[in-house]
Amino acid sequence: MLLDFERLAGLRPFLIGLTVVVCLFLILPIVFIAALSFGSSQWLIFPPPSWTFKWYQTLFSDSRWLYSALTSLKIAAIVTVLSIVLGFLAALGLNRGSFMGREALRALFLTPMILPVVVLAVALYALFLQLGLAGTTIAFIVAHLLIALPFSIISIGNALEGFDKSIEDAAILCGASPWEARLRVTVPAVSHGIFAAAIFSFLASWDEVVLAIFMASPTLQTLPVKIWATLRQDLTPVIAAASTILIAFTILLMVLAALFRKGRKV
């Protein structure tokens, strides 16, 4: 009865009530930030004296915001591609290989995900300073790839788990080369895993703050770095406007993901 929604009896209002409160808690900052971005008060007084679009105008007229968004986009796109390729290969090896220390290797691959980002950031920052790569696009890509890769390995690994390798072998028997078989049979079959890997990798880079703070230079800032710097020195509602656009972008991504899943079912 505790696991039957209809027969929860007295517990039901409690659980529903709590869930509603949690939902409000989760949605509150998101709605609030959107509302704040239309408020006219420069000093974040809410409710504001009047409503305005001026923070969006400021946002779009300041090329630094646009430039940092493009930088983020570029880095996240490159990271996504590399993460999928390396992640697919690694997942394939971890999934099918029977070499020594496979489980240890899997754990090693996933460590950057669990390790405090600040440790990785500081260590990489030191390395890149020595290599003369601090503040370059390459530094950004390497740093973000490290934290994106575990997501790819997990997503694609899970998908490979559910894929019957004998189908790939059948293709090889029919005359395809091993790589041809993998590209034309295996990759499409695990495409949902690759798609998940792509989304997670993209978000891991796009949304990343701590590594980015250490990797950034005056001329190379991702959007989160720009927001961070603005938060530390300006607090202007332009941050709310930028955040609102990011939220809209996230919702769009979620809708796309949902549609993709629906499409696969049909």
Binding site: C23, L26, I27, L28, P29, I30, F32, I33, L36, L44, F46, L203, D207, V209, P224, I227, W228, L231, I239, A240, A242, S243, L246, I247, T250, I251, L253, M254
Partner: peptide, 22 residues
């Protein structure tokens, strides 16, 4: 679930900024 995932995927700094003001 959609609300949970939306909150998860919203930019970390945006969420923190919102709490600062709230």
């Amino acid at each position: 679930l959609a609300i949970i995932i939306l909150s998860m995927w919203t930019n970390l700094l945006a969420r923190t900024y919102a709490w600062m003001v709230l």
